[in-house]
């Protein structure tokens, strides 16, 4: 909006100050947990922000040492379960969003309203009955036992976000391509698919974030390394020995699971922002 050349030096300085405040705000706790992950146990109580010596022992502990069973299995569970839940909800939502954006049928509003109602549903209210049911039918502490309830988190947002994206696709182009001699399939594949892909992709990222973030289902519906995801495993971490606080190991594990999130954010910042806001505000 503003042309930088026209601004006085003083105004410019203020914008930089405001920008730096936001940078510090967003990154400070992240910097802290990174710093913590490189501290030795004896360095924890010093009250210093940065470690006295930067050591990688905590990473060694969770990736190769005593805590690796707990951490690596939970990492596998988290990645697998979140990806499958994301994939299922994106596929289901893709068909639903196509219908909502493109077809005229009664119940469109009903579907969107239901998605909204599911999105605001308190997770713990689902956990209580599922806990009992899953134990009876053998889904307790299994991957499907988490994937199914994860759909309650990922599906509504997928439907909202994707139908918002699909509404903006100029569908007339499909007919135009057909007039120009393309077959229905060609028109769909060459014209519509490339236009729809960014929306699908953005939805998948947002949906993955939500599944990756889950904690309540993770601690309530699992009991062992068979299915426990990372956030739940973090809460059950133990130190290198029984008498040691697991602080360093938790910090290191926290950093490891934050890396993929940061990479996704850096790569797809623009899309994530438009996905988040379109689903909720514009549509």
């Amino acid at each position: 909006m503003m042309d930088e050349g026209q601004l006085s030096r003083g105004t410019k300085v203020w914008w930089w100050v405001a920008g730096i405040v936001i940078l510090v705000y967003a990154l400070f706790p992240v910097a802290w947990i990174v710093s913590l992950s490189f501290k030795t146990p004896s360095d924890l109580g010093t009250g210093q922000f940065l470690p006295t010596d930067w050591v990688g022992d905590n990473y060694d502990n969770i990736l190769r040492g005593d805590a690796q069973d707990l951490f690596l299995s939970s990492l596998r569970n988290s990645v697998g379960i979140s990806l499958i839940a994301t994939f299922i909800s994106v596929v289901l939502a893709m068909f639903a969003a196509y219908a909502i954006a493109r077809l005229d049928f009664p119940g469109k509003r009903l579907i969107l309203t239901t998605a909204l109602a599911v999105a605001i549903f308190p997770v713990i209210s689902i956990v209580t009955p599922l806990f009992n049911l899953w134990r009876n039918i053998g889904l307790y502490d299994t991957w499907p036992g988490l994937i199914i309830p994860y759909l309650s988190l990922t599906l509504p947002i997928s439907i909202w976000t994707m139908s918002a994206f699909f509404r903006q696709i100029p569908w007339e182009l499909e007919q135009a391509a057909q007039v120009d001699g393309a077959t229905t399939w060609q028109a769909f594949r060459k014209v519509i698919v490339p236009l729809a892909t960014p929306g699908v992709f953005t939805t998948a990222i947002i949906s993955f974030f939500i599944a990756w973030n889950d904690f309540i289902y993770g601690i309530s519906l699992t009991s062992t390394e068979a299915a426990r995801p990372v956030p739940a495993a973090l809460a059950f971490f133990t130190g290198a020995s029984q008498f040691e606080e697991p602080t360093g190991a938790i910090a290191a594990a926290a950093v490891v699971v934050t890396i993929p999130v940061v990479i996704l954010v850096l790569l797809f910042q623009r899309r994530i922002v438009s996905g988040l806001t379109q689903g909720a505000v514009k549509g």
């Binding site: 920008g19 936001i22 940078l23 967003a26 990154l27 706790p29 992240v30 802290w32 947990i33 913590l36 974030f209 990756w212 973030n213 904690f215 990372v230 956030p231 973090l234 809460a235 602080t247 938790i250 910090a251 926290a254 699971v257 934050t258 999130v261 940061v262 996704l264 954010v265 850096l266 910042q269 623009r270 994530i272 922002v273 988040l276």
Partner: peptide, 25 residues
């Protein structure tokens, strides 16, 4: 663009991780 990128980090970080960061601080 820098601001819109960094602002997404708190949003995308796992809540449990953020809770631990604040707790340990």
């Amino acid at each position: 663009p820098i601001l819109r990128t960094v602002i997404l980090i708190p949003y995308a970080i796992i809540t449990v991780v953020s809770a631990f960061a604040w707790f340990y601080a």
